[in-house]
Design a protein around this nucleic acid. Sequence first.
DNA 1: CGCCCCATTGAGACGGCTCAACTTGCGTGG
DNA 2: CCACGCAAGTTGAGCCGTCTCAATGGGGCG
Lengths: 246, 246
Amino acid sequence: MATTTLQSSCNHGFIKTSCFDCNLKTLCLPIAMDVRDIEKLDKIIQRTRPIQAGEHLYRSGDHFKSLYAVRSGSIKTYLIDDEGVEQVTAFYLPGEVLGFDGIANSIHSCNVVALETSSVCEMPFERLEELTLVIPGLQHHFFQLMGKQIETDHQMMLTLSKKNAEGRIATLLLGLSRRYGRRNLSRTALRLPMSRMDIGNFLGLTIETVSRTFSRLHKDAVISVDGREIVIKDPEKLEHICHDHA
Amino acid sequence: MATTTLQSSCNHGFIKTSCFDCNLKTLCLPIAMDVRDIEKLDKIIQRTRPIQAGEHLYRSGDHFKSLYAVRSGSIKTYLIDDEGVEQVTAFYLPGEVLGFDGIANSIHSCNVVALETSSVCEMPFERLEELTLVIPGLQHHFFQLMGKQIETDHQMMLTLSKKNAEGRIATLLLGLSRRYGRRNLSRTALRLPMSRMDIGNFLGLTIETVSRTFSRLHKDAVISVDGREIVIKDPEKLEHICHDHA
DNA sequence: CGCCCCATTGAGACGGCTCAACTTGCGTGG
DNA sequence: CCACGCAAGTTGAGCCGTCTCAATGGGGCG
């Protein structure tokens, strides 16, 4: 590869300076791209300093400038309505792309905050829109990313609208399991990056109900729970609970 | 304009053969476009025969081919999960664009059905992707449309997760009112295009609760209800109910 | 050690669901 | 023309899952 200098401010061993070297590229760039094209893309991507837990990447009302790919750590997005009610809208893990909430009005509608020390790749959107005209498939790729987000949101609407507390928790756990698996991490033993409060807010439940549901699933030997450490002991039963309507 | 022959199979007086003549273009094409560019776009758009109530435009699993702009009538989209549970994910009114659920995997994930006799403009997506490279702003426009969909879905997640029955109904009514207003129709007197069942399914409520909630709002003189005919009598109070958390 | 935050667990209240009866409107056929 | 069936909507009574309120436990950190 052409680019050589190693990123200085990175504290995670696997972070590389180029998309080409990044082991997450199969997740956030799953398209066949010419080496020359990757270089073009690489040039516009800014690898910023790590974000600390609780630090915001951007807030509702901020001017929309960029999309972001999570490189390490984990991130949540949330809305705040007129009355101050908050709604966690998504959790983002390494290899996932966020920031689409700003495209429609050039103003972000979401708030984005790190759940732990995290790092992101910033992709200035105007530059990206120029590149999509030059790099074959890149436009389609971003349409796909947004389409995927829409499908995920629709699944979430189904979860919130039709499932009970157990089904919601099971759905969340299986989703996280699958996403961890895509990164070749354990699908059965996972550490939740978010608090019970975040889980409850996301799933439309109180923290008490979240806690009780974890306890019940533990008692029923479907999972084991130790704080944020979860082990999925019976994936099939969890799947069944997840699909259990009402 | 260049195009001249009048569409034969149209039974709605205001339907025109060209985007240029269409009075909905400020909704589905709110960008400054050269007359020549509109012609290019116009050439790829297919104006199909009307869809009857209950007829599907496409179904989950169908190959993704096109986006659709609603020209007249109204349309609902819904998911069916593994267990056969259905979730209405959106209602689409004239001037609104749907079909993004197929982009990610080239396979549609939603089912789309007409709530009444409706007509749509079909926009073959591959052609569209070619045109975006030629017509300035068109790519950004479709990014915006998808971004808007994502924001709408996030608001829906908040509604499903945080609002009680009254709040959900109020949110739906105000949303419809606003969208009718954009088409210069009455914001206060509206005819619901969907059944109580559809409303309940969409909002995560049973039809009984929907019915009771309408009755209560009627009794409290916030709205008047006569079957599907709704009159919003106290918009401010409705707004207040809508923002009433829990 | 003591404080604070997060999580867990229990008891009671309440909103929406379930089940059921009834009404209304509409199309069909006797 | 009315009788009938059917689908959609309304209303009531009782139940159940989740929320609310409250007390307790435990881990990190000054």
